[in-house]
Design a protein around this nucleic acid. Structure first.
Length: 593
RNA sequence: GGAGCUGUGGUGUAGUGGCCUAACAUGCCUGCCUGUCACGCAGGAGAUCGCGAGUUCGACUCUCGUCAGCUCCGCCA
């Protein structure tokens, strides 16, 4: 039995009512959060997106009214007309924003009944994510989720306001685009009109925004949906939203300055938080050396210490050999962890194993000196040097990984984060912004045995490194930059190449012939023949940014309708099979072998 | 492609070879109850223990496979 809304107009959101409304006649509409039926009087907590208000349903409003009131259940949608009054002495509820008042209903309409929901619509339920995602519309009713999406709205609005106020134009770029072999795996869309041909969904608007620079729209931004057909993570969805921006006639500092100012403004508008600018800048090399990752979380210490020099002459063959083969030995001083059990250390060993470390050597610092299975390989002098370099004190646990630099960095970098979490060293209230700059322009692909672009092939090298592009590609620094917040990369970009001879050197270093470059990036290359301004830009991951702002652990909590780890939408069941007719129109046959 | 964790009434959990004819909380239904706010009280319904094989006299429990969710490695210019 559902009634119409006819003749009724909502006057207030439930959650906004307070003492100032006492005496007013109000009309509220919302969902039944909870009902308390006392036989005589029935209390209903009515919920809308602004919060809860208590509605009092009294039998003296008539039999018809009260019989209807008795049928009300959780999550029914009601319209209530009534008078706001202060709650009686002693029955106020300080846990509720609206706890000083209540609405005495004189008209009640059940706009919609509801089945019993599969889970309770409240913040403090820990329901299996399977069920949350299947009934996402119910999950999204929960106040915490509504808060997340409101924050997301406010964030995006602040972003749009900031860029508009600073002369940027929001310009849309195509969703159906050309597949490019570089980068992530493309999502493909078959063309009906051109048999056997496919569009690709954009991984980012990268080339289009550079073309907009060529076209003279010298400050561009876009809140752009991007698609990458790669495996998912807590902070990676197959479709995600980028804040994409590009500027002409700028150098690196111009981009960094305006972007950190923008972020500070966004935090101010959306969270009323003051962010100090400028952000600290760290070179890629320093980040790797000290933290083992290119997106360090600097809210705590436990930095990596290189002890290769101190260890190379020891009689510990395993370490000495690794060093002689170009490897290194680095360590972390896990302050105060000297009491870790054998099992604790085994767990950590297993943990670094994930990142390729073959072992985890350790030294326990005790009152009576050093306890360590590897101590016997070192002279007392060598041990003293290692301990002093790592500032080891009694009660500490020194942990070491010896391997090639990339493995040492990855394993100790992640071990550092794990220890930071376990030891509760991270202040969750702190916002640690920084820029990582001077990334390498190239990285070596061991499988393909060639240099590839670390960022993308249009990233400009640092001017004085250009001569190295031929002689020593690994040493060339890029004019690229990442913005890091609490150890999460929230944005990245670069100053682009705008000079032809640099671009040619770039393709040469990547092993691309002129013809190949023309085939892959022809339209951009053509455009660059017609007057291209120096330009650079950045793209932010809005999902990640909002996730951090909302203090959530996964971007799924700030995306209305996310997909599971196997890229399925449990609510709509996408992706799904399509009809034979649809396939035929597209000239597609499915190979089920 | 790989590793780990999880899967038991609607929901959250307990049960680790026979004591299970599966327990507890909550939700749901019925009745009572006029000041509750996690209302209360009484009663009731609700589960072939993710699915499929196997081991066993006997499997929620052990083994293998499989499916789903999560976390991670690879991947993500």
């Amino acid at each position: 039995m559902s009634e119409t809304i006819q003749g009724l107009k909502r006057s207030h959101y439930c959650g906004t009512l307070n003492k100032s409304h006492v005496g007013q006649e109000v009309t509220v509409m919302g969902w039944v959060y909870r009902r308390r039926d006392h036989g005589g009087v029935i209390f209903v907590d009515l919920r809308d997106r602004e919060g809860l208000v208590q509605v009092v349903l009294n039998p003296d409003m008539g039999d018809e009214f009260f019989q209807k009131a008795e049928t009300v259940r959780n999550e029914f949608v009601l319209a209530v007309v009534g008078k706001v009054r202060p709650r009686p002495e002693g029955s106020t509820n300080s846990n509720l924003k609206t706890g000083e008042i209540e609405i005495v209903a004189h008209e009640l309409r059940i706009l919609s009944t509801a089945k019993t929901t599969p889970f309770y619509i409240t913040d403090d339920v820990d329901v299996d994510e399977n069920i949350r995602l299947k009934y996402r519309y119910l999950d999204l009713r929960r106040p915490i989720m509504q808060k997340n999406l409101v924050l997301r709205h406010n964030t995006v609005k602040a972003i749009r306001d900031y860029f508009s106020d600073h002369g940027f134009l929001e310009i849309e770029t195509p969703i159906l685009t050309k597949s490019s072999p570089e980068g992530a795996r493309d999502y493909l869309v078959p063309s009906r009109l051109k048999r056997g041909a496919f569009y690709a969904l954009p991984q980012s608007p990268q080339l289009f925004k550079q073309l907009l620079m060529v076209a003279g729209y010298d400050r561009y931004f876009q809140v752009a949906r991007c698609f990458r057909d790669e495996d998912l993570r807590a902070d990676r969805q197959p479709e995600f939203t980028q804040l994409d921006a590009e500027m002409s006639f700028v150098e690196r500092e111009d981009v960094l300055n305006i972007m950190e100012d923008m972020i500070a403004q966004v935090f101010k508008s959306a969270l009323n938080m003051e962010i100090k600018t400028p952000f600290p800048r760290l070179s890629y090399q320093e980040a790797m050396d000290r933290f083992g990752v290119d997106k360090p979380d600097m809210r705590f210490g436990l930095e990596l210490v290189d002890v290769s020099e101190e260890i190379k002459d020891s009689s510990f063959k395993v370490f000495a050999q690794i060093i002689s083969q170009g490897g290194q030995v680095k360590g972390i001083n896990a302050k105060g962890c000297g009491k870790f059990s054998r099992k604790d250390i085994d767990d950590l060993t297993k943990y670094v194993g994930i990142y390729g470390a073959k072992g985890l050597a350790y030294i326990i610092m005790t009152e009576d000196g050093i306890k360590s299975p590897i101590a016997k390989f070192f002279t007392e002098e060598q041990l003293n040097k290692i301990v002093s370099k790592m500032q080891g004190k009694s009660g500490d646990l020194l942990l070491f990984v010896a391997d090639e630099p990339s493995v040492v960095a990855a394993s100790l970098g992640h071990l550092r984060l794990e220890l930071g979490k376990r030891l509760n060293l991270i202040n969750e209230e702190e916002l640690n912004f920084l820029w990582v700059v001077d990334f390498p322009l190239f990285e070596y692909d061991k499988e393909e045995k060639r240099w590839t672009a670390m960022h993308h092939p249009f990233t400009s090298p640092v001017e004085e490194d250009i001569p190295l592009m031929e002689s020593d590609p690994g040493k060339v620094r890029a004019r690229a930059y990442d913005m890091i917040l609490n150890g999460v990369e929230i944005g990245g970009g670069s100053i682009r190449i705008h000079r032809r001879y640099v671009q040619e050197k770039m393709f040469e270093a990547l092993g691309l012939s002129t013809d190949e470059a023309q085939e892959k990036f022809g339209y951009l290359m053509d455009a660059f023949e017609y007057g291209v301004p120096p330009h650079g830009g950045i793209a932010f991951g809005i999902d990640r940014l909002v996730m951090l702002m909302a203090k959530r652990n996964t971007i799924r909590d700030v995306i209305a309708f996310p997909k599971t780890q196997s890229a399925v939408d449990l609510m709509s069941q996408a992706p799904s099979e399509v009809s034979a007719k649809q396939l035929k129109e597209l000239n597609i046959k499915v190979d089920n072998s």
